[in-house]
Design a protein around this nucleic acid. Structure first.
Length: 893
DNA sequence: GGGAATGAAAA
DNA sequence: TTTTCATTCCC
């Protein structure tokens, strides 16, 4: 009754959409959700404050379960066992069933679904099975210790009263080992998680540094590649660069995600990417790419100068510099530095720098100048060199609290002591941002200054690692600094990137800016993100991390040496900066290109599509894969938007969740949906139970209803068209169907996407048949199908090809050729061969897959076109199949 | 919270 | 072989 509101009606859209059962907060990925929740909680606190007491628990998710949670246990508890194939099927088709049978309640729907399931072609089932398996695998990876049945043990939950009813149990084998669930704990507690699959906790806790580490590691490899590629060409390689960049991002994201910490990492990454995108976009907007380069150079140049200056300073007064207190101790040095900086800055950008004394004054004045400058050098702002130092000084003075050591270390890390100093100012602002985004946790509310320092450092590190530099900083700047400077920056930002403001915390920012007092408010951000403790941890982490992770060139180098060998550091730093810069430029260029090409847009669109899920709010995490993909998407998506506003922290979380969900959905969506009609027929023909042979129902389901499923008519048609083929073989052209699929496929990282997802085979008929019969059936069906596809019109198989071709024309824009190719090939293959494992191509593709999905698709398409260019005709050679970008899997009965 | 379905895992 | 529990959501 109560539920009546919901009625079947809306459910139409998706299972996913609306449904949130009361209890279950997180359908798919409890784990992620929890993790995310953790973050989100914090954020929420910030935003909402009201709500959560302190409980870090899950504010959001918890819907009902909150109670249960003590974080750990709960988290564990939270994990829900992965859905099995049937459940996936149900989820996917329930809405359809409901549409057809609005009055049916779920039970009835479930029965129908069961019928459908029974009828469903084995192949089709296989897809779901595969997906389920994948899902499970991912889940298990995420939750190594997860047990389906807690069995008696389940001691776990006892405590919390709530014990999750349902969830209850699953005891994790060993808490320690079990990562997933525990991760949260770890995070909270500080235990270390071995990482595990997800090990989110660590990175999160680690904060930016950890992030850096993770990202850095990935980045290193990725970057290397990218750098090499990028270096080769600027524009020409653009595509290559793009790919590389995408790839890198993907890897980074994936890598980070894998390790764990979906939430934080994602955010950070996203932010980074986003920033990147913004950077590029901004720069592009503001000025030509050249400008960008110039700016970057200038920035780099400045940095270099900074380093040099710092070196000099160090040489002169190492001790002081280290200790820092820039103003206090190294007034002279500072001045020198300032002078140099000013020069450099002026050189590059007109003056932003101010002397220590005048800093603020100038800063204010500069504000105006900055605006103008901004246009000139976007990066510059990003560097935030100027202001930050000053502020830093101030801050340092004010509070060096946290650990001067850290600050120093940080400085060392960067290799840019001076920079750090400078950065601080921005950092303050940035910090918020950074902390929020990149490192949710760290910040201690209390001392901004200290935080700012650390954060700034971390931020910079992260930025460096990411190569975001400018972008992040830009974003950050606005936020944190309460000071007038911030205002200036803001103005800068405004002009440059309204987005950022929009982004996440503009609101807060605004608040913050007004006055330092706001700092507190700021802290909330941090706080929200980070637990109170983190600071020390962070610091330590940072230090530790640095050496550990070579996140990026800069960091690693600097890290080890940093502490003592400053000189070398500086040099190195400079170099690194340069390298990064190149990377950045490449990335930026790539993004730009992507944007221009519209790829980002498309990605974004995909994301948007997925959004509906966002409403759900559930996040699913389970697999690294998904999460990774999500990230990738999110990143790409955000970047694509260009300016999309970055969601606020909360939003980000939500976003993260949403993204996860989206991804999941994408994947999920990738699963073939079958039109009810088809089932109906079958059902009708065969009264529920699986009818095995099927027979023939020929008909085309497609007529309409089916439409709802995949892509509208087109997709559906395609499906049908494919079906025939699929009957014998499954064709999976990645691009084949609708974008959704593509996206979804992309989403799937590796194999899954390829292997299973693909083809939607509506048909269910043939399966049971045996050998020759099957073949006959297939052919027959095929003809039928073909006909149906056409609209029932064309009879014979000959039409198939035509239809296939037509189909693409009709709807498919992109992969038409590919599809056709696939189809033809598939058909052939089906006839001749049935089993084709996934193509060899996959592996390569798989690598990028998540992120680059679109890019890949495009590339693949291009390749196809170029290579095959509608070769298709029947003869497709099996070999081609393998080659063909489109994956075709032929399942043989 | 039960229930309708299926399936996987554990006992 | 039996239990649990995964999803969905009305009742």
């Amino acid at each position: 009754m109560k539920g009546s509101s919901r009625n079947k009606d809306h459910s139409t859209e998706g299972e996913g959409t609306g449904k949130r059962p009361k209890r279950k907060c997180l359908q798919w990925h409890p784990l992620l959700a929890k993790k995310l929740l953790d973050f989100s909680e914090e954020e929420e606190e910030e935003e909402e404050d009201e709500d959560i007491d302190k409980v870090p628990l899950l504010g959001a998710d918890s819907l009902e379960q909150d109670a249960d949670e003590t974080e750990d246990e709960e988290s564990e508890q939270r994990a829900r066992r992965p859905m099995n194939a049937f459940l996936l099927f149900c989820k996917r088709h329930r809405s359809l069933v409901r549409k057809e049978h609005p009055r049916l309640d779920n039970r009835g729907a479930t029965k129908i679904l069961a019928d459908w399931w029974a009828v469903l072609d084995p192949k089709e089932k296989q897809k779901y099975t595969d997906m389920a398996k994948e899902y499970k695998d991912a889940f298990m990876k995420a939750n190594p210790g997860y047990k389906w049945c807690p069995t008696t043990n389940k001691p776990v939950k006892t405590q919390t009263s709530t014990v999750t009813n349902r969830k209850k149990l699953w005891a994790f084998a060993s808490d320690a080992t079990k990562d997933l669930p525990s991760p949260r704990k770890v995070t909270t507690k500080s235990e270390e998680m071995p990482q595990l699959n997800f090990g989110m906790a660590d990175p999160t806790q680690m904060g930016g540094l950890s992030m850096l580490l993770l990202a850095g590691e990935h980045a290193l490899t990725a970057q290397e590649v990218s750098s090499s590629t990028c270096q080769s060409d600027a524009t020409n390689s653009t595509e290559a660069c793009q790919k590389s960049s995408l790839f890198q991002f993907a890897e980074i994201s994936s890598s980070t995600s894998q390790p764990g910490v979906p939430g934080a990492v994602k955010q950070t990454e996203e932010s980074a990417l986003f920033q990147f995108a913004e950077m590029s976009s901004n720069t592009s907007q503001l000025s030509s790419p050249e400008l960008v380069k110039l700016c970057g150079k200038s920035a780099l140049f400045q940095l270099a100068r900074m380093c040099l200056a710092s070196e000099g300073v160090k040489v002169k007064e190492p001790g002081k510099t280290k200790v820092e207190a820039p103003e206090d101790a190294g007034g002279e040095v500072l001045k020198e530095m300032e002078v140099e900086l000013e020069k450099a800055i002026k050189d590059s950008c007109k003056g932003k720098i101010e002397q220590l004394e005048i800093k603020r004054m100038q800063n204010r004045d500069d504000t105006k100048a900055e605006e103008s400058e901004t246009a000139k050098c976007g990066d510059f702002t990003s560097l935030a060199m100027e202001n930050s130092p000053f502020e830093r000084n101030d801050n340092t003075k004010d509070h060096m609290c946290c650990s001067p050591e850290l600050s120093i270390a940080d400085m060392n890390i960067f290799g840019l002591k001076p920079e750090k100093i400078k950065k601080k100012k921005k950092k303050n602002k940035l910090d918020r941002h950074t902390s929020e985004k990149s490192t949710p946790k760290k910040p201690c509310k209390k001392r901004q200054s200290s935080e700012s320092d650390i954060e700034s450092v971390m931020y910079t590190i992260e930025a460096v690692a990411k190569g975001d530099w400018g972008a992040e900083r830009l974003a950050d700047t606005p936020r944190k600094k309460p000071r007038p400077v911030s205002n200036v920056k803001e103005s800068m930002l405004d002009t440059k990137s309204p987005k950022k403001k929009v982004k996440s915390k503009d609101k807060k920012t605004s608040k913050e800016k007004p006055t330092e007092t706001t700092k507190e408010s700021k802290p909330p951000d941090f706080l929200s993100i980070a637990a109170s403790k983190e600071e020390p941890c962070e610091a330590s982490d940072n230090i530790k991390v640095e050496p550990l992770t070579p996140t990026e060139e800069v960091v690693p180098q600097s890290l080890p040496e940093q502490v003592k060998t400053e000189d070398s550091d500086c040099v190195k730093k400079i170099e690194t900066c340069g390298s990064r810069k190149s990377e950045r430029s490449c990335k930026g260029a790539l993004y730009k290109t992507l944007v221009s090409e519209g790829m980002l847009t498309s990605l974004r669109a995909n994301v948007d599509r997925g959004k509906r899920s966002s409403g759900k709010g559930n996040s699913s995490d389970h697999e690294g894969c998904w999460s990774e993909e999500n990230w990738a998407f999110s990143q790409s998506g955000t970047s694509g938007n260009k300016k999309l506003k970055r969601p606020r922290p909360k939003e980000e979380f939500v976003f993260g969740l949403a993204k996860l969900e989206e991804e999941f959905e994408k994947k999920f969506n990738s699963l073939p949906q079958y039109s009810p009609i088809t089932f109906d027929r079958k059902n009708s023909s065969v009264p529920r139970k699986k009818r095995k042979v099927g027979s023939g129902s020929s008909e085309h389901p497609k007529s309409n209803k089916g439409g709802p499923l995949l892509a509208p008519s087109v997709a559906y048609m395609i499906v049908e068209a494919w079906t025939p083929f699929s009957s014998g073989v499954q064709c999976k052209g990645s691009s084949i169907l609708s974008e959704d699929r593509i996206s979804s496929e992309s989403a799937w990282k590796n194999k899954i996407s390829i292997s299973a997802l693909n083809t939607p085979e509506p048909a269910m008929m043939h399966e049971p048949l045996v050998g020759s019969q099957k073949r006959k059936a297939r052919k027959t069906k095929i003809t039928h199908l073909v006909r149906t596809a056409d609209g029932q019109v064309s009879p014979a198989g000959g039409t198939l090809e035509e239809k296939l071709k037509e189909l693409p024309q009709s709807t498919l824009q992109k992969t038409q050729s590919a599809e056709t190719d696939c189809n033809s090939e598939c058909s052939r293959n089906a006839e001749t061969e049935e089993n084709h494992s996934i193509t060899s191509d996959m592996p390569a593709v798989s690598a990028f897959f998540s992120l680059a999905a679109l890019a890949e698709v495009a590339a693949m398409e291009n390749v196809h076109r170029s290579q095959r260019a509608t070769p298709l005709p029947h003869d497709g050679q099996p070999n081609e199949m393998s080659q063909a970008p489109v994956l075709i899997s032929c399942a043989d009965q």
